[in-house]
Write a protein that binds this DNA or RNA. Structure first.
Length: 567
RNA sequence: GCGCCAGUAGCUCAACGGACAGAGCAACUCCCUUCUAAGGAGUAGGUUGUAGGUUCGAUUCCUAUCUGGCGCGCCA
């Protein structure tokens, strides 16, 4: 199908070039208010200063351009200049009906683009640390990451989802110290819940001791070194056991969240090569020795190898980039972490630029905001953490008490959908204040609202034996006089591909959330006012319902949320 | 101390430098003999932290200032 935005932009570009003798960049957007048309541009206001001698004001120029454009755009039936100088475009009925047809034909592929075809993208997200809890910050990370992966794939990219987990380092040493000094016996713990809870408590114990007790601090530092060197047999065993417990637990969460990783990377695997990279580059002055440690002087100074001679997170990341590239010759490598690592990555990338310019240029750090708790503070060192699993279970329990008859599968889909949506609907970079009640809300701008709207479309369609056979041809449709609600819905539907593209390019699932919410609202309004089955225009309305259902399904998929047929 | 980010309705958040600053929740009115009421229609709620500036136009950009969060050589 033709791309109307491009048609408009090209036509405008040509006319403006004749007027001012140079190329201008034209932006076509969807007006917030539907009374301003299906597409709009502010280009006249932007370039008016160049033609101020020839025209009285921007509106006059806009009028002139509108006249030039008339009849040049086959899919546009009305063009209008609006003060102070906007130009607004309305799509033709023919185009709208063709598009509707296109949606129901394309089905699950509707909205797909080929922008990123043949592009290999490495996408690292989640990054929970074994021995520590999978908390709601990780939940936001994994939810954003999975959605981003799907958005990129929808644009044609070949995406490798990878997960980098810190199985060595001070946090592990603290947890192991906690294990050794805990009264609880590991062999008594049978269930996965008990085990992950125990590890969380052990970490809290170790972290507290590290801060408050000099002797414990020494012991923890020793444990840390022993793990790096793998020098202590019994400690190794403990480490392997705890590590496995954690990873098994994480695996269950990934499954519930419908995320599958292509590769797992571990810090135990990047530490040594990372250290080597750094040591190798002291002589050429990229890194420098200072107070026994090896540091890099960038925007600020960071330690890459400690005076105890083990690699820090910084050094490990240098090796990770290399290992990743050996596995998958990526065009782009994206790492998703919380905002607090922005400055950290700035310096690591500065160092990487000197060590390996090629990899550094392909690497992008994308961050997201902190998840605050409305109900109180969260701290893993104090053991007062809301775990991802707890939240999912809590959502499910509350749902169950409200809908006792709902089957287990749907319960899970809706509960997970509610939690995921609550992480996606806000703009990615801003901190969010997280509330249980809102995160598992079923009303308003929520995951379940979208799922419910989808189920509603399916429920209507299920009443008709074969709704697809009821799709009329276009010539028949064009004589239909549309109701207000139908027209608004139809004119909204068609923007889905643009929204997906926008959402993908900016790594902003919230844009898609907002659109889907608006769409569901518009459909529900239509549904409330007009009877679908048995109406005079039943065929058209079924077709519209089919298209809405399809877009909700595709959109929810891109958010990583499942769309149940029934609720 | 330095740096980064943010302050928008009672609450939680939207708004490529654009058109009367929008939603959801909470409050108040209505709508189930009708395809799913997890729904729909409506009312009320704002000097966008403060003071300047740039612009045809500023929540958005700049400067100052206040408040909050985060980050700053041996954690990850």
């Amino acid at each position: 199908m033709q791309n109307v935005e491009k048609e408009i932009a090209d036509a405008l570009k040509k006319i403006l070039k004749e007027e001012i003798g140079e190329d201008v960049k034209i932006e076509i957007s969807r007006p917030q208010d539907s009374s301003h048309g299906d597409y709009s541009t502010n280009i006249i206001l932007r370039i008016f200063h160049k033609l101020a001698q020839k025209y009285q004001n921007p509106h006059d120029l806009a009028e002139f351009i509108v006249n030039q454009l008339q009849k040049k755009l086959p899919n546009i039936e009305k063009i209008q200049a609006f003060p102070p100088g906007f130009i607004n475009f309305w799509l033709s009925g023919k185009y709208l009906f063709e598009k509707l047809d296109h949606i129901t034909t394309q089905q699950d592929n509707f909205g797909k683009e080929a922008q990123l075809r043949n592009k290999k993208i490495m996408l690292e997200f989640a990054d929970p640390n074994p021995f520590k809890e999978f908390h709601i910050g990780h939940l936001r990370n994994i939810t954003l990451g999975e959605s981003y992966a799907r958005l990129l794939e929808f644009q044609g990219a070949d995406v490798w989802r990878v997960n980098y987990q810190g199985d060595v380092g001070m946090h592990v040493a603290k947890a192991l110290w906690g294990v050794q000094n805990s009264k609880v016996k590991m062999q008594n713990l049978k269930s996965k819940d008990e085990r992950s809870k125990f590890l969380g408590e052990a970490y809290a114990l170790g972290a507290k001791a590290y801060d408050e007790d000099e002797k414990a601090k020494k012991e923890i530092e020793e444990i840390n070194l022993k793990i790096y060197q793998k020098s202590d047999q019994s400690l190794n065993k403990l480490w392997e056991k705890g590590r496995k417990w954690s990873l098994d637990h994480f695996e269950e969460i990934y499954k519930r969240l419908r995320t599958r990783y292509k590769r797992y990377y571990f810090e135990s695997q990047t530490a040594e090569p990372g250290r080597e990279i750094v040591l190798k580059n002291i002589e050429n002055k990229i890194f420098e020795k200072h107070d026994g440690a090896v540091v890099f002087r960038g925007t600020h100074t960071r330690v890459f190898v400690t005076s105890e001679n083990y690699a820090t997170y910084e050094a490990k990341d240098l090796a990770l980039a290399k290992i990743k590239f050996e596995d998958f010759k990526y065009d782009r490598s994206i790492i998703i972490t919380a905002n607090e690592q922005i400055e950290y990555f700035k310096v690591v990338l500065e160092a990487m630029k000197k060590v390996s310019l090629e990899l550094a240029n392909k690497t992008i750090h994308e961050s997201f905001g902190f998840v605050k708790l409305k109900e109180g503070k969260m701290s893993s060192r104090k053991g007062s953490v809301i775990t991802g699993e707890w939240l999912l279970d809590e959502a499910k329990n509350r749902l169950k008490s409200q809908f006792p008859k709902m089957d287990g599968e749907t319960l899970e889909k809706v509960a997970v959908g509610a939690v995921k949506y609550s992480m996606l609907k806000f703009s990615r970079k801003s901190d969010i204040t997280f509330s249980f009640d809102e995160s598992i809300s079923l009303e308003g701008n929520s995951g379940p609202y979208l799922q419910y709207s989808y189920a509603r479309t399916q429920s209507v369609l299920a009443k008709i034996p074969n709704p697809k056979s009821k799709i009329p041809n276009n010539s028949k449709l064009q004589n239909i006089k549309l109701e207000r609600e139908e027209e608004l819905l139809l004119r909204l539907l068609i923007h889905f591909p643009e929204v997906v593209k926008d959402s993908s390019e900016n790594f902003a699932p919230n844009i898609l959330c907002n659109f889907l919410f608006e769409l569901a609202q518009s459909f529900n309004n239509f549904y409330q006012k007009h009877k679908i089955i048995g109406s005079k225009t039943e065929e058209f309305r079924l077709n519209l319902t089919l298209a809405v259902g399809q877009i909700l399904k595709n959109g929810l998929f891109l958010l990583g949320i499942e769309a149940p047929e029934k609720m």
